[in-house]
Design a protein around this nucleic acid. Structure first.
Lengths: 224, 224
DNA sequence: TTTTTTTTCTATAGCGCTATAGAAAAAAAG
DNA sequence: CTTTTTTTCTATAGCGCTATAGAAAAAAAA
């Protein structure tokens, strides 16, 4: 086997080929680097979510992983790169999922619920990476944010298009501003997503139902 | 006049007696300290909003005020205290305003719009203090957060009570969860508040209308 | 086993940041 | 004008943090 001049080079390959390797713990670990790299991203996500990017230290992240501070640089070139990778972590798969949901032909209520479920589920599963994406990504210099921006706007456009479909097929009011509603949906989901992480006693499914209900039906009594 | 052993002692007096002193620029400045203190809070708010608490330096804040880094400590005992004061800045008056709005006897739609207007207007006027409150207050140690917590929950309770009134008087659906809706309203407002600060091209009044509309009417087509 | 490759560790250079102390300047009082 | 009080400045102690270098340990290959 060729020597790895720079361990960071294997990353992209790893990310795309062995998705979910973090869960795959059995068998002789041929891809130990890729595996621990994912653990490193998750550790960074956890710490950044708790303390914020600038408030977190590389020492904190290393501790969370159970390694020494200096060893962290075997997985990240810099703290900033760690933030970037946390923000991007799982985002492409997330957008893919959104694409599928939007493409599926189903009643609008169900579609909206699926969208919200996808969004909020991510908060529970992705260990704070989503929270970090929302709250810390602006601390990255622009040149590190292009991919994140790209994915974010792709997500928003999918949502807007779905809303437009909803209007055209008569499910939604014709007078809503799809751009505004898309931002609002994302806003509500992120707000509740952060609550879900902070407060363990909150029920995911109830939250999903309540969010869908509010967005679709509002609060006003229609019997009036 | 007695010598000021510690300039920080005058703060509370100042805050309560000369509200809005920052705008009162004419006349011989008998309360120069109190005046500049408010400028200091606003400068800190601006910087914390842009860079986050840990990302901001006391140098940044001093620069924003046009003084030297060391001089900042004439106004704040510590950087942490600066964050605390920014988070509390104007919050009590804000809760008072909310109280008045909720107490007023008016159609529910108007009340909801007034609440949202009050919330979003704060973002435009209070120079980022509200944004800092939302995004950075958790970086304060708990002992510095008691007042902020107090005010926040008082605000939430006012909102919940108003929603309960709305249900009792038949304006609102009887099956909504006031606690959930209150959090959601705050979430939407904060999300759009942050957008308003970031994007100057956004129209405040349109945003207010759109938020009210979404919360009250939802998005579904009722003609179906 | 021996050699090569991968992973982790220790130690530290070097920088920037908070907070303080004391002097200096500006303003107000006497 | 002189004295006192308020405000700002300069300089720096002291700490913690990022990132690097090179040794050491562990794992894999030969």
């Amino acid at each position: 086997m060729l020597a790895m001049t720079d361990p960071h080079n294997i990353i992209e390959l790893a990310e795309s080929t062995i998705a979910g390797a973090a869960a795959n713990l059995r068998g002789p670990q041929k891809h130990k680097y890729a595996h621990k790299k994912l653990l490193a991203i998750e550790a960074a996500a956890k710490v950044f979510a708790d303390k914020g990017f600038h408030g977190a230290t590389t020492q904190d992240i290393a501790e969370q992983m159970g390694i020494q501070q200096g060893s962290l640089y075997y997985y990240f070139k810099s703290k900033e790169q760690a933030l970037q990778e946390v923000c991007e972590y799982g985002f492409d798969r997330y957008v893919e999922r959104m694409k599928k949901i939007c493409a599926k032909d189903q009643p609008f209520e169900a579609k909206m619920m699926a969208i919200i479920t996808s969004h909020l589920t991510n908060y529970s599963h992705k260990d704070s990476a989503m929270k970090v994406h929302n709250e810390q990504r602006l601390y990255l210099p622009v040149e590190r944010r292009s991919r994140i921006k790209e994915l974010g706007s792709r997500y928003r456009k999918l949502l807007e298009a779905t809303l437009t479909d909803g209007i055209n097929s008569g499910f939604l009011r014709a007078d809503i501003d799809t751009h505004f509603i898309a931002y609002s949906i994302i806003g509500i989901c992120n707000s509740w997503g952060a609550n879900l992480i902070r407060d363990e006693s909150l029920n995911l499914f109830e939250t999903i139902e309540q969010c869908s209900d509010l967005i679709l039906y509002g609060t006003l009594n229609k019997n009036l």
